[in-house]
Design a binder for these strands. Sequence first.
DNA 1: ACAGAAAGAATGAATGAACATTCTTTTTTC
DNA 2: GAAAAAAGAATGTTCATTCATTCTTTCTGT
Lengths: 179, 179
Amino acid sequence: MSRIAAEAKMSVGHIYQYFENKEAIIIALCERRFSEFEQLLVDVERKHHENAASLAEAWISQFTWWLEPTRAPLTLEIMSEAGRNPKVAHVVAKIDRKFRDIMRGSLLPLAGPISNGEVEARLEAIVMLAHGMTSRMTADPAADPRNLLSALSLTVHKLLGREPRPAASDDEGPIRNSD
Amino acid sequence: MSRIAAEAKMSVGHIYQYFENKEAIIIALCERRFSEFEQLLVDVERKHHENAASLAEAWISQFTWWLEPTRAPLTLEIMSEAGRNPKVAHVVAKIDRKFRDIMRGSLLPLAGPISNGEVEARLEAIVMLAHGMTSRMTADPAADPRNLLSALSLTVHKLLGREPRPAASDDEGPIRNSD
DNA sequence: ACAGAAAGAATGAATGAACATTCTTTTTTC
DNA sequence: GAAAAAAGAATGTTCATTCATTCTTTCTGT
């Protein structure tokens, strides 16, 4: 609380006029974080709704947002907290549902006609990849965001039954994780 | 510490005869956890080295280990902690390296000849999926381990360029995540 | 064989720091 | 000058670590 107060340039006591307790702050931060990302996806969808091919690329590239070095650790902390705190779990569940709805509607149709169960399995796989990205990003100081993103891209394309884009945006080969 | 002491049926003070401080206990727990899993993979490899087809299946099924409801939350906590504590990060990096070595040697050859960069990208994807599994498992109380595992299986098979096994072990369809 | 001294094992109360929350006091605003 | 806003000191709790003390085992000299 004292650090939050310092950051907000308020006194500790004053914060309690705006939030009932620390947990309420945490919930609000989670909600803000997730709705920011949701907005990113909605924007991408609006921009590319006419062009199926570019949608996948644009959609994937949004995940750099989660790879910001200050964002990933706190996101992982949120997932951990969700395991203990049902209120946090509820906020996480909300964005998860939203995220899957968006994918079901705009991304997965690119895979062609597949069974309902297959659709859900692929959704789950992509959600797992997204979670895995933030976990890898925070747990491995040598993890390179570009590698994580291209592994995501590769896998999403395979899940959509398409070939990944022919070349990376810059001409370098894959980057080694050094020790 | 008091809870650890109770669990170990020791006094709090006595624990400090065996561990320098709480951090040392945490490191030891991480090491034990990871080496247990490593042993699982080594065993699977030994058992299936003659049969490439069954290796992938057996290998994938080992991941139920990470899905144990008491294991996943603490594993996620470890990943979070690795972001702050370099000693924990080092232990995580060690199992990560080992894990990739095993995969490179026994699993990925099933995918046929692919470029070096492709190999590393697929390794990263599988590692991300593994991390994602524990994150999903702890963050979503409605997550079903069977769904997570079959999403993993589906994706690993796609990454290996093979079709997933024809049917699930039991005859049920995919399980919905209820609300 | 054995008293008793030394070493080691184990306990649990004391310490001090961190921290969320509340309460009293001060400052600002109208 | 009253009411609202803001500050920051006080409170009570949790928790890792330390420390004085007690209990147990092992060794030593006769």
